[in-house]
Amino acid sequence: MSVATPTTETTEPDAAPQLPPASQVYLARSRVEIVEFFRQKEALVFTLIFPSLLLLIFGAVLNYDIAPGLTFVQYFMAGMVASGVLASGFQNLAITIAIERSEGRLKRLSGTPMPKSAYFVGKVVQVVVVGVATIALLMVVGVVVYGVDLPATAEKWMTLVWVTLLGLAACSLLGIAFSSAIKNGKSAPAIVTPIALVLQFISGVFFVFTDLPSWMQSIAAIFPLKWLTQGMRAAFLPDSFAVREAAGSFELGTVALVLGAWTIAGMVLSILVFRWRDRADG
């Protein structure tokens, strides 16, 4: 309603209204991302519950000692926590973003005044919530069923926190970037899941890393999961185990360096290749 101009009834004020504050949109996006995740049965089962299920099964089968007083389940726990981080960040985002792109949901979002950053903020919040829930569930199952030891000192808890956060950052950004390589959202799980599985086999999740052939260890060292798993071992295994690592220590400095490098690489890749539209859509 224009008050001052008595000209005609046709003219609405031409100035566009102020947009809502970004923080408000961030909240709204974060909320729907979390709600949607927890309503999707596939996501819930394969991302959140699957690591705990594997812990249950492998713990029952491979319940031998790998060192005096150290069970394989304790070693496997560290691997599953790392895998949970990979699943919440990489698998989750690579698959869901590819599907959202195929369904035209990203295109629709990009046609609204929503700040583009709000989409990614929503995803990050979702990944952190899912990652923390996955790890919490693993800890409950591990402690209750197999008497797994949680990180023993405050310092080890801190290690768990920073390795988790840095791991989620690297995996999320790589997931966002990788989603652009998937042409059809329907095939996304079939493409992404085997990648995660192979990485788990060569990165010291299912087997003790130092038992793997050295060429396999060298390949695994390129990818983030090996370092993520190693960082988690620093949190979940006693310091006395460090000598049994390939380098004779948990190499936390290198863990931070490699995960940090993958985070930066993931960010650069995402900026370069992220698309709001399907490739088939021109």
Binding site: P20, V25, A28, R39, G104, K107, R108, G111, P113
Partner: peptide, 29 residues
């Protein structure tokens, strides 16, 4: 100031009708 109704591709959002419209509304002044 623009509304866009694209060619539909379907989709299987697990949000309710009200939630879907509410989050869209949050982008506008």
């Amino acid at each position: 100031q623009i509304g866009i109704v694209l060619q539909s591709k379907g989709g299987d959002s697990e949000l309710t009708v009200a939630e879907t419209v509410r989050v869209q509304a949050s982008y506008f002044a």
